[in-house]
Simulated assay, not measured.
Amino acid sequence: MVQFLHTQADLALALARLVQADPRLVPVLEKAGEPALRRGQPGFPGLARIICGQQLSTASARAIWTRLEAAFDPFHHEALRRARADRLGRLGLSAAKIKSIKAIAHALAKGELDLERIAQSDADTAHAALIEMHGIGPWTADIYLLFCLGHADAWPAGDLALQESARIALGLKARPSAKELSAIADAWRPWRGVAAHLLWGYYHVVKRREGVAVEAKPEAAQPAARTSTGKARRNGRTQRPSAVGTKPRAAKR
């Protein structure tokens, strides 16, 4: 059965199951605290927003997205498919991002990409379907599954912040490669996405810095969550947009 994180309560329950399955993560949760669940818009707008924000600061990504969203209201793949590249460029998109967004829009228009079916698929099947499309690499696919669909088992193994966080949290001698991190995360199925949320939170605490921003809204109006140590954490602490990881520079766009 495919598991999704729709509410903060879903995340709290999944975290409890995750640390029960792997006690090595208990001190990680105690130090990082329960992360706030962040959700972005699903479908074409969500994918386009992730691509827009790749390797940009939160402020720059937000500014470009604000202009793009205002220029195309409603934000529909058919409108972007027909849009002139020079117009998109004036809104702040690079040539590579224009090519990626247009390729996805064309795939949706032709029925080559079925985002509704992907939304119901298990993490590995959904990941494989997404990366078949030009412009959607492994990192983009998994960030979409995590933050736009709330998939509990998506796992962006190529994310540099996750790799570094896992190195520190698990006491590894070196930062694991994407392949090595995938093998480590096999023990966390079907909660690999939950582990990703936890490790990003841990990375922020121990490194005091964040990677490339993927902006998503925290779940609203949730009561203060409690960590495994019993200390309350207010959602207000996470009301600002924050980074979730660092896309590998060599990843496919």
Rank of each mutant, 00 (worst) to 15 (best):
Q239G: 14
A128S: 07
A61H: 01
A9F: 04
E116H: 15
R62S: 15
L162N: 04
L29T: 00
D73H: 13
L37A: 00
P45C: 14
L5F: 02
P23G: 12
L47Y: 01
E215I: 04
D159V: 06
F147R: 01
P27H: 02
K207E: 15
A129H: 10
R189T: 01
A174T: 14
D122H: 02
R253C: 10
V2W: 03
T125H: 12
A79E: 12
Y203R: 01
R167H: 10
D73I: 08
S60R: 03
I143L: 08
R84N: 15
G171K: 04
S182R: 08
K31Y: 05
G230D: 07
G40M: 11
L80G: 03
K252L: 13
I64L: 09
R17C: 06
M1D: 09
A128P: 04
L170M: 12
P176Y: 05
H151C: 02
T140F: 00
A36K: 02
A70S: 13
R208D: 12
D153K: 01
W200P: 00
R175A: 15
E116Q: 14
A70K: 14
W65Y: 12
L130M: 08
A169G: 09
A154F: 02
R49F: 11
E219W: 08
G171A: 08
E210F: 10
A32D: 04
G40C: 07
L108Y: 04
V214T: 05
R233W: 07
K99C: 05
W191N: 02
V212M: 14
L170K: 04
G89H: 08
L181H: 02
I104C: 10
A123P: 00
T125W: 11
A12M: 14
A48Y: 10
R226G: 09
P45D: 07
